[in-house]
Design a binder for these strands. Sequence first.
DNA 1: GCCTAAACCGACCCCCCTGGTAGGATTTAC
DNA 2: GTAAATCCTACCAGGGGGGTCGGTTTAGGC
Lengths: 166, 166
Amino acid sequence: MIFSSKAEYGVRLMIELGRQAPDHPTSLKAIADAEGLPLAYLEQVVARLRRAGLVMSARGAHGGYWLSRPAEEIGMDEVVQALEGSIAPMECFVHDRTERVLCSHEPDAGRGCATKLLWTRVQGGIIRSLQATTLAELVQFAGGPSVPVALPVVDSAALVASAPAQ
Amino acid sequence: MIFSSKAEYGVRLMIELGRQAPDHPTSLKAIADAEGLPLAYLEQVVARLRRAGLVMSARGAHGGYWLSRPAEEIGMDEVVQALEGSIAPMECFVHDRTERVLCSHEPDAGRGCATKLLWTRVQGGIIRSLQATTLAELVQFAGGPSVPVALPVVDSAALVASAPAQ
DNA sequence: GCCTAAACCGACCCCCCTGGTAGGATTTAC
DNA sequence: GTAAATCCTACCAGGGGGGTCGGTTTAGGC
């Protein structure tokens, strides 16, 4: 199995948020009920999305979560990366911020690390297919906005100002 | 981490076999020594490759393994699939031979399973990048065929060093 | 005909991570 | 002030990854 259930749950959570009007928060409980997922566990999942700046939250009664950007501007690579930590096909793909790649076995001077070539290609394939999919696409596929609650339509002008969201 | 170390070890093993002359078998021990991998574990790994028909073996003294096809004809998708069992991005991607996909959560009639769309794309991306790479390519990258192998000559000096074990 | 090198096989084992729970503290609308 | 919600930390059980061990067969070489 390539991705953990955190990714599955997190993506479903994002889709649910994408189906809601962007201006009023949706409680986790509503999502947990709708998707049949354990609430307490969802808390951990959504925390990652929040720390990554993909969703915003309001505490207190009638609080909840909403997308920090319109679904059209959210690439699934961001979502999965936030949920899974990093998208690395193999252990030795742990970067330390720089581009250095720590390879488990000896970096034999003479010959290159052939497996690295392979895993690099795989990683590229994964990331490209994730990038090519936006959250909006999945929301649409899932049946579009849940109810015509309010316009999911966001004026194009407002889009650019996506808050950096520490 | 997407692939287990079985994939890493198995690919390296295949590359080692690709570097050898195809007509005389290479012992696992030679590969284990060359790559610094545990022999007993490699046995399990190579068993998968054998069952998948990617390598052939000869038992007994001077036995060993060799590629059952030229490296140019071996796609890395076959190799990884043999080692990992199946290349499924998510739990619900367990086919039962037919094309039916068992999806963990309710197959809601109205709307499609949106995450399935995403994982299908990811799976496609992975498999395509694996298919696009042949074992021969990796062998070449690793420095081509190893030295015109100094025959399995009984070199007394070298042997003594590793002799007295157990 | 031994002896030894190898492939083969199956059982076992440890540790870490995933998946999930429990219980609380804090914030906010009414 | 109370209820609804986010937030946070600790904890835990199970399973699978990553091996190890011991033994059985097969085949060359002397």
